[in-house]
């Protein structure tokens, strides 16, 4: 009896602690949410109010209209979905090559891809811009997404994942006369659901959160993406209209949080354990 009571108090304490920390972690988002529903005079009142007096939606409407958020969100969504599938397709193919085939220059090629694992966009952005523009792809969706398509991470992680699939499968498939592509599409891919879902999430977020490249390659308002919208809110609002800026920021961040929550299970299991172990 006494022990369980101590146990209960212990658990209660940990819960309280975790609740407090959760609030601190979420504080930037919660306060932004609160301010986004407040009219100007309430935002600048002192002491600042933590909870809106009533739900005031004008900030959302104004932010939405000021920088054409509907268009920006659609662009981001479109580009992110393309990058998500494109990266996955390329990564699955090349990961399969490195996990199931022996061929000349395999090590060299693998190294050549792996070498780019951490090569950030910033290191090559000027020549990249000139090149993409010369292809006539400046200010187009193709120009926006193409440089994102190749991914060492996806190739590497797909390879790691494919290596975990029992080798006996391959042998029996081969004995049954199953060709390499059929093996990939009918056996390997169906077995890789969680890993694919996890990688898809990451790749979606990479494109959705990209800032520098869209900033450089896109000119016209109807091509811009959501992250640029955040910066545009800072420059377009005639003075720092925090309610409006935070409303826009919330709109931009909501899809990322939804995608993350939906795929969290796959993501955490699929990637985190694999990235390190191997």
């Amino acid at each position: 009896m006494r022990k369980s009571r101590k146990d209960f108090l212990n658990k209660l304490f940990i819960h309280l602690l975790l609740i407090v920390i959760s609030f601190i972690v979420l504080m930037p988002i919660l306060l932004a949410l609160s301010v986004s529903f407040q009219p100007r005079d309430q935002i600048f009142s002192y002491p600042p109010s933590l909870i809106p007096e009533r739900l005031y939606f004008d900030n959302y409407i104004n932010a939405w209209n000021l920088v054409n958020l509907d268009r920006l969100l659609l662009n981001s969504l479109f580009a992110s979905i393309i990058v998500m599938f494109g990266k996955l397709a390329l990564g699955v193919l090349s990961g399969y090559a490195f996990s199931h085939f022996e061929f000349k220059y395999k090590k060299t090629l693998f190294f050549a891809i792996l070498f780019t694992l951490m090569l950030p966009m910033q290191v090559r952005v000027v020549p990249l811009f000139v090149f993409v523009s010369n292809l006539g792809l400046a200010n187009t969706y193709s120009g926006l997404v193409l440089p994102f398509l190749a991914s060492a991470t996806t190739t590497f992680l797909m390879r790691q994942h494919f290596l975990t699939i029992p080798k006996s499968l391959m042998e029996s498939a081969q004995l049954d006369g199953c060709g390499p592509f059929r093996f990939l599409f009918q056996i390997l891919i169906p077995l890789s659901g969680p890993a694919l879902a996890g990688l898809a999430t990451v790749n979606f977020l990479v494109m959705w959160n990209a800032y520098l490249w869209p900033l450089i390659i896109l000119n016209s308002d109807e091509m811009k993406v959501a992250q640029q919208g955040v910066k545009m809110l800072f420059t377009s609002a005639s003075e720092r209209d925090w309610g409006l800026i935070m409303a826009g920021t919330i709109i931009v961040v909501i899809p990322t949080i939804i995608v993350f929550l939906l795929a969290q299970k796959f993501f955490v299991k699929g990637i985190a354990t694999q990235g390190i172990k191997e």
């Binding site: 523009s133 006539g136 450089i216 000119n219």
Partner: peptide, 15 residues
């Protein structure tokens, strides 16, 4: 500043 930058880049790529 963005406009000046983009103009430069556009000039180099002929657009």
């Amino acid at each position: 500043n963005d406009t000046l930058t983009k103009t430069q880049a556009a000039v180099q790529s002929g657009s």
